[in-house]
């Protein structure tokens, strides 16, 4: 009798639907609408490299010490500098970072004594050419500018 009632009133069906309904809670949705919404990666994520500039005067923080280039296992970093005769300090001329073979181990970031070189949370590094993977100083300071989509 009870079984018959369950069958008539589709109890099993509603129980199943309830399970489905429960996982519809906005908190539980795990699908990411990727190009519109970029996922939030961890704070310590090791992504695109960036050469930090001093926010006050816009000068680079890099002191051309070459430690990042020495720490890099794949020797991807080339630091170009000239000795400034007035201040007796090294002036950064050029900074190239080959992201094509970078494995984002973070050793360059660790080696930097002034926090100038940093691996950021940007993860969109694709390029149409191999040359596009070699980032120069301007690219490193501005960061990659991936296409933005309106959601």
């Amino acid at each position: 009798m009870r079984k018959l009632l369950r069958t008539i009133f589709l109890v099993d069906l509603f129980e199943g639907l309830w399970v489905t309904f429960r996982s519809q809670h906005p908190k539980k949705i795990v699908t990411e609408q990727y190009p519109m919404h970029r996922p939030k990666v961890a704070e310590r994520y090791r992504g695109a490299p960036r050469l930090n500039i001093n926010p006050e005067n816009g000068e680079t923080l890099c002191i051309s010490c070459d430690l990042c280039a020495l720490a890099c296992p794949e020797k991807l970093i080339v630091v170009g500098w000239v000795r400034n005769p007035e201040t007796k300090r090294k002036d950064l001329v050029n900074f190239t970072f080959d992201t094509s073979r970078c494995m984002f181990c973070g050793l360059c970031e660790d080696a930097c004594p002034v926090d100038a070189l940093e691996l950021t949370q940007d993860f969109e590094l694709a390029s149409y050419t191999r040359e596009g993977q070699i980032w120069d100083r301007q690219m490193l300071e501005e960061g990659p500018r991936p296409t933005q989509y309106k959601s």
Partner: peptide, 26 residues
């Protein structure tokens, strides 16, 4: 996810350094 929170990478983590750790516990 815990690996990513700790050291920033999920699979090839490079989490430890010789002599200890690079990253403090989050």
């Amino acid at each position: 996810n815990i690996f990513e929170q700790y050291c920033g990478a999920r699979l090839t983590t490079h989490a430890f350094r010789i002599g200890g750790l690079q990253y403090e516990v989050y």
